[in-house]
Design a protein around this nucleic acid. Structure first.
Lengths: 219, 219
DNA sequence: AATAAAATTTAAGGATACTTAAGTTTGTAT
DNA sequence: ATACAAACTTAAGTATCCTTAAATTTTATT
């Protein structure tokens, strides 16, 4: 029998850990679209297996064992993403969903072969870091949400959130991709939307859009 | 919840149907490495869903609905095999197992994209036909097991059975691959093994090996 | 045709992962 | 400090897919 669920729970815990490595059960339920009761059930199981630290009514935290496991899942997911994007030519907004299914299949050997073929990429197509075979997570450049830039500041896109395909389709339509320079021309006070310049063209971005794009500030 | 099992049962039924489209329950159990009871259980479920014709103690047969479903699974599997072999560079003996896991993941859209990228291959790396998007199965050239050739007959390899990795490793070591010409030099009477010539080199093949290699007879 | 062997099904039960509904604990607002 | 809401767990039950053991049906042998 497959371990799809367990794998999903562990990577979701990993991806949603706060600075202290803690996650709330509810958040996992929401992300995985299951009931809270299902989460409790699974947390008990994962605790029994030594993958997480967990006391009823307290938060959850990965043990080092659980963290290794989760990092490998995230690694698998992100290598698939790069592969699908670069080799198969799948657009930005399609790779996440496909990779989510594929991450549970394919041997580690295949993943390693693909990684080599891709020349050991450090970041996936959305700018998220890819843990190495040894579990080392590449450092990301210091970055802030585009929504934090002041008028006339420039930034280079380092990462975008990947949880909404339409968001990705929209921003690529207006020319936003990794490494692209964006200049904030104006911050509109009444709705906090911003007017930006990309490739010489001006666009208005809603605050929500701007909150999901992360840039390295350029001097 | 995933449908991995159901998918496996249906493709296994498809792949093991005899000339009349019939399969024995036992054979499915053996191929899938599950108990006979598990097969009975699943057959009831598949019948309920209208995927198979099935009466207790009688054989199994796919309905046209089940056949469409199964052919699509086989298609997915074989396109993955070609992709892994040609694009990722996986050897002959590795593609089947990887593809077996991957065939359950990845959208039909992805499969179609890979198929296009591969220029619509008609056969997988072992020579098995790939059903088209519309369900059309390419015709194979008339072929017979190598074990059926008489002394001094020549054949071109059209297909090999793919259920044993060591078999595949062995035959590729001695230079056997699709389209390779093999000449039968001698059939040894005492153990029915055969002496063949491949690329000018002579090799002895056991009867079992020869039974799993299929050739088009050359005049 | 009787009987033994082989193939298959039924019965009972287990693991995983999910659900809804009800109950408990925790934290916050007054 | 209490009371309430939010967060979480427990309880009971479902679906899927599997197991072993016992019973049944089919088939092959004499």
């Amino acid at each position: 029998m497959k371990n799809i669920s367990k794998e999903d729970y562990l990577s979701e815990i990993y991806k949603n850990s706060d600075e202290n490595g803690q996650v709330k059960a509810n958040l996992i339920a929401e992300k995985l679209q299951v009931s809270n009761a299902a989460v409790t059930d699974m947390l008990k199981k994962l605790k029994r297996e030594g993958q997480i630290k967990y006391e009823p009514y307290r938060g959850v935290e990965l043990t080092s064992k659980g963290k290794e496991y989760a990092k490998n899942m995230v690694r698998r997911h992100r290598i698939w993403e790069v592969f699908l994007h670069q080799i198969v030519g799948l657009p930005w907004d399609k790779v996440h969903d496909e990779a989510h299914h594929l991450e549970h299949s394919g041997s580690d050997e295949l993943i390693n072969k693909m990684e080599e073929m891709l020349n050991f990429p450090q970041f996936d197509p959305h700018g998220d870091p890819i843990p190495s075979k040894l579990g080392i997570v590449p450092e990301q450049k210091h970055n802030v949400a585009l929504s934090n830039l002041k008028q006339n500041q420039k930034g280079v896109v380092i990462r975008v959130n990947d949880f909404d395909n339409n968001f990705l389709i929209y921003i690529s339509q207006i020319g936003i991709k990794l490494k692209k320079e964006i200049k904030v021309c104006e911050v509109l006070n009444f709705d906090k939307s911003i007017l930006v310049e990309i490739d010489g063209k001006k666009n208005n971005l809603s605050r929500t859009i701007a909150e999901n794009i992360f840039v390295e500030i350029k001097k």
